[in-house]
Design a protein around this nucleic acid. Structure first.
Lengths: 226, 226
DNA sequence: CCATGATTCAATTGAACTATTGATTAGTGA
DNA sequence: TCACTAATCAATAGTTCAATTGAATCATGG
């Protein structure tokens, strides 16, 4: 790599810099949280369980690579995902799940029994929502729901699902979604709902993918940053 | 990263391993060449200008990440791109060109004057080919053309373009393409053709993207491996 | 079965990356 | 202005990664 650096070489190196930014477990986690909505450094650090200083440096790495932007809001800095990043992560996940042995192994270990919950596609959900034949629930925490959610969804955080069961119509099929295709919240929700006799399925993707596809979303008008 | 490693953590780490594989200039170059067709190690080393031993190790890195597969053919090993990788690279390029300062700078430096050559889209090319109103030329070297090319294309390697000019109809507009959206071959071809009074434009993408989109391709029945 | 060509392997060196620590900057409100 | 909170910065040590070199495989053809 220490060479004369022709045009080609430098362009590939530049693209590689962007790839390096997504080539770390913590940064992928940060990006997944940012895909749910804008977030401050400390908030992200708490959600991911890494120290503030470390999160700060990883976020700056993402910033230099052009994956996020920052704005100040009083004493905190709010990071936001750039356009195209959700698609990049989707392409990465797709290749990993299709061909990478390590990823397949982890998925088999943690999602094996659950893959029988045949998921619902975007198109199918749109059609069923139009005819009013499903109840759509968002099982993410309330603050994430408030920052943005699928149009027509009802927030039922996983923690409160047992209590909410009483208010759900057992005759109507339930579709649950959460942060993304490999987020465990909705897997758990489906299992619990089925255990109570509900007909429940899982949306194949999460809120970020739905939004990136340009499908209808809603947003609560409550203060966006917790 | 040295932690208890929950399900989430290990899955993100796994995805990060795949991302690491594309996070190197040489490996991106190798992937671009593999996107043109299957290639042996030495061949790739020659095309990219890196040593055989180094290329071998990078290719094994790509293999472990699930981006390529290998088969033996006599004494050589032929590497092949896995499905979905072209899309991953396209997503990476898209984010880099939209938001990464370094990439934008390189592109401005090397492609600035050339971006005025307003490119042709897949759809537009399909339509124009159907009505027979363009001559489509593939300006890659002959061996790459043989391994696969757009249906209806004529091979005019960049090196022979001056000689081929005589055989082209000056009344019909020319569309040129090569290895990908940032491959310089077709930029050069357009410039030379225009200098000779031809009406010439560039296909926005290259052969790999066309093929990945499922559009019609052709292949010469000559020995595939040089 | 030996020589050859293609590729991989193993060991080494230097460079780059990551997490941690403690100090520092920057805004906010009393 | 002072204390307080949020975030970044700077230095460090441990770890991983990359390129080079030369030796070792492994299939092929005489």
């Amino acid at each position: 790599m220490v060479q004369m650096m022709g045009a080609k070489q430098t362009l590939y190196d530049s693209f590689a810099e962007v790839a390096k930014a997504v080539a770390h477990g913590y940064r992928l986690q940060l990006l997944e949280h940012l895909a749910q909505g804008d977030r401050a450094v400390e908030d992200l650090a708490n959600r991911t369980g890494i120290t503030v200083a470390n999160a700060s440096q990883h976020l700056q790495h993402l910033y230099r690579a052009g994956l996020v932007t920052v704005r100040r809001e009083g004493t905190r800095r709010i990071y936001r995902l750039n356009s195209g990043v959700v698609e990049l992560l989707a392409a990465l996940r797709s290749v990993a799940e299709a061909h990478h042995a390590g990823s397949q192994q982890v998925i088999r270990a943690y999602f094996a029994a659950r893959d029988s919950l045949e998921p619902v596609s975007h198109d199918e959900l749109m059609a069923r929502l139009a005819e009013g034949s499903v109840t759509l629930i968002d099982v993410r925490p309330a603050d994430e729901f408030q920052q943005g959610h699928l149009a027509g969804a009802r927030n039922v955080p996983l923690a409160e699902i047992e209590a909410a069961v009483a208010r759900l119509d057992p005759e109507i099929e339930i579709v649950a979604y959460c942060r993304g295709p490999r987020c465990v919240l909705s897997f758990d929700a489906i299992e619990r709902l089925r255990a109570r006799g509900f007909k429940a399925r899982r949306l194949a993707e999460g809120y970020p993918e739905w939004k990136a596809a340009g499908l209808p979303t809603g947003q609560s008008d409550i203060a966006s940053i917790p």
